[in-house]
Amino acid sequence: MNSITSLFGIKYPIIQAGMIWNSGYKLASAVSNAGGLGLIGAGSMYPDVLRTHIRKCKQATQKPFGVNVPMLYPNLEEIMTIIVEEDVKIVFTAAGNPKIWTSFLKEKDITVVHVVSSTAFALKAQEAGVDAIVAEGFEAGGHNGRDETTTFTLIPMVKEKIKIPLIAAGGIATGGGMLAAMALGADGVQVGSRFVASLESSAHADFKQLILNVNEGDTKLTLKELTPVRLIKNKFYQDVQDLYEKCPTKDDLTHLLGKARAKRGMFEGDLIEGELEIGQIAGLIHDIQPAAAIIEAMIAEFETAKTALQHIKF
Rank of each mutant, 00 (worst) to 15 (best):
D270I: 02
E77N: 14
A180S: 12
V112Y: 12
F8R: 04
F314C: 14
S118M: 03
S103M: 10
A120E: 10
D147R: 08
E78W: 08
Y73M: 13
Q190T: 00
A28Q: 04
V84C: 11
V196P: 03
I79C: 01
A183Q: 09
M298H: 13
G129M: 11
G96I: 05
L223T: 01
A205P: 14
M80L: 15
M71N: 07
F65P: 01
L223Y: 09
L257A: 10
A132H: 07
F104S: 14
G176N: 14
V67K: 01
G265W: 03
K246M: 08
M1H: 15
G142M: 06
T249G: 07
T52M: 09
Q209M: 12
K58C: 12
N33K: 15
E245W: 08
G145F: 08
Q16C: 09
P47E: 09
K163C: 00
A128F: 10
I82R: 13
T61E: 12
Y244D: 07
G141L: 02
K233Q: 12
L76G: 08
S118L: 07
V158S: 10
G41C: 02
G96W: 06
V88T: 04
E139W: 07
I172K: 04
D147V: 11
L72R: 14
E277W: 04
V134G: 03
G171W: 05
L210D: 11
P64N: 04
W21S: 04
K259T: 02
E160Y: 09
S23M: 10
S202T: 15
A140T: 06
F104H: 15
T150M: 13
E277V: 00
S118T: 13
R51F: 06
A169W: 01
S29M: 04
F302R: 07
M19P: 04
E127I: 07
A135Q: 08
L7A: 11
A183M: 13
L284S: 14
S198M: 06
P98F: 06
A125E: 15
S44I: 00
G171A: 08
K161W: 03
K26Y: 11
W101R: 10
Q238D: 15
G258H: 00
I162W: 02
G43Q: 06
A181S: 09
Y46H: 13
A122K: 08
G170D: 02
L253F: 12
S6G: 13
K89G: 06
A168M: 03
T153R: 13
Q62N: 15
A135T: 08
L253D: 15
G41D: 06
E245L: 10
I278P: 06
F236K: 03
A28W: 05
E160I: 02
K26P: 10
K250F: 11
L199V: 15
Q238G: 05
F138N: 11
Q126S: 03
G145N: 09
V113I: 13
L231H: 14
M266T: 03
V67Q: 10
Q59R: 13
T61H: 13
L184N: 03
M298N: 06
D147T: 12
A305Y: 14
E301S: 13
I288R: 07
K263V: 00
D87G: 10
I14D: 01
L256R: 00
L253I: 05
K106Q: 12
T219F: 02
T249F: 07
L39Y: 11
A262I: 07
F195W: 00
F65N: 06
I83Y: 03
E225H: 07
V214E: 03
E200N: 01
